[in-house]
């Protein structure tokens, strides 16, 4: 039964909504509208001549094998980041939830990386895995593994996935910790008395009860991998070698900002917008049904 609050008159509710509406309008609808408008145009870099070209930019982008390849790169990248970040965070949260000495210290340390800016995170990883100056990079080469992420696309991908996932672990960790703390102890103790071992308790009680948290985090992580990993890719690999780590969002930047090809870049961001809308809708429609709140 929903409780209905009724305002007298119309002015106050609008006034209360106004800040949020303004922010959504200025920072979301207006730029999105600009992108849609720009995606139908073709202009020179200086904006001195422009031409309406209909859906030509879209047709060109979708027929470009490099664009399709970068779509696949994005899928691989996003799911790897989400999976790695979620599983690592869950493991750490379960461990930190146990009654161990100095648990608070561990928790603080695990939350720290979230405060690191993406570009700085990337540089940290660069200093570890650069084949010539990086500690681990040199170690790998010393062990006879030909490590050079500047030339090996798979290694470059692995590196950006690790760096991007590492940064997201903290965020997931906080939510999993909160989720774990809300699981009633009585249920776990009852299971223990019935003879369920820790592994079994985890998979039959903790994991299902964490499902709402995991679902929320899955959405957030995929959106993060899609949009927020630009800094890491830019600082670590520049989308290379070849186009091995050029994700869709990185390609929008390369074509728009570096190559000054505004029409194509705008068309790509419109496609990206559609993908994310679809992705979120699908997640809420199908995945949410299987989640018990």
């Amino acid at each position: 039964m929903r409780k209905k609050v009724i305002f007298k008159g119309i002015a106050l509710p609008w006034l209360l909504l106004l800040p949020q509406l303004l922010i959504t309008g200025v920072f979301f609808f207006w730029p999105a509208g600009q992108a849609i408008y720009g995606s139908f145009l073709r202009e020179d870099a200086f904006g001195l001549s422009r031409q309406f070209v209909g859906f030509e930019n879209f047709a060109e982008v979708l027929a470009d094998p490099n664009y399709l390849a970068s779509g696949w790169t994005t899928v691989v990248f996003s799911f790897s980041v989400a999976f790695t970040a979620l599983s690592a965070a869950l493991f750490l949260a379960v461990q930190a939830d146990k009654a161990i000495r100095g648990a608070n210290g561990y928790k603080t340390l695990l939350i720290w990386p979230y405060a690191v800016a993406p570009a700085i995170a990337a540089v940290l990883w660069l200093f570890m895995f650069h084949p010539q100056i990086g500690l681990f990079g040199r170690m790998l080469n010393g062990l006879g593994i030909g490590w050079d992420y500047r030339l090996n696309g798979d290694q470059a991908m692995l590196l950006v996935i690790l760096a991007a996932a590492w940064k997201q672990v903290s965020y997931n960790f906080i939510f999993f910790m909160a989720g774990l703390q809300s699981i009633p102890k009585a249920v776990l103790e009852a299971a223990a008395i019935d003879g369920a071992r820790p592994m079994r308790r985890f998979w039959t009680i903790i994991f299902p009860l964490l499902a709402p948290t995991s679902f929320f985090l899955l959405v957030v992580n995929i959106v993060y991998a899609f949009f927020d990993t630009f800094g890491i890719i830019h600082a670590l690999t520049n989308g290379g070698p070849g186009q091995a780590t050029t994700t869709l969002i990185y390609k929008v930047y390369v074509d728009g900002v570096q190559n000054l090809n505004f029409g194509s870049s705008a068309a790509q961001s419109v496609i990206l917008m559609v993908i994310v809308i679809l992705l979120t809708a699908v997640q809420f429609r199908f995945v949410e049904r299987k989640v018990h709140y």
Binding site: L151, G240, P241, G242, Q243, Q258, N259, N261
Partner: peptide
């Protein structure tokens, strides 16, 4: 025209050749 982009393209294709792709 668009030489910045053409250089990037040359670089990418060279890298793919060096990788053996």
């Amino acid at each position: 025209g668009g030489f910045v982009q053409i250089r990037d393209i040359m670089q990418e294709e060279m890298e793919k050749a060096f990788q053996g792709q």
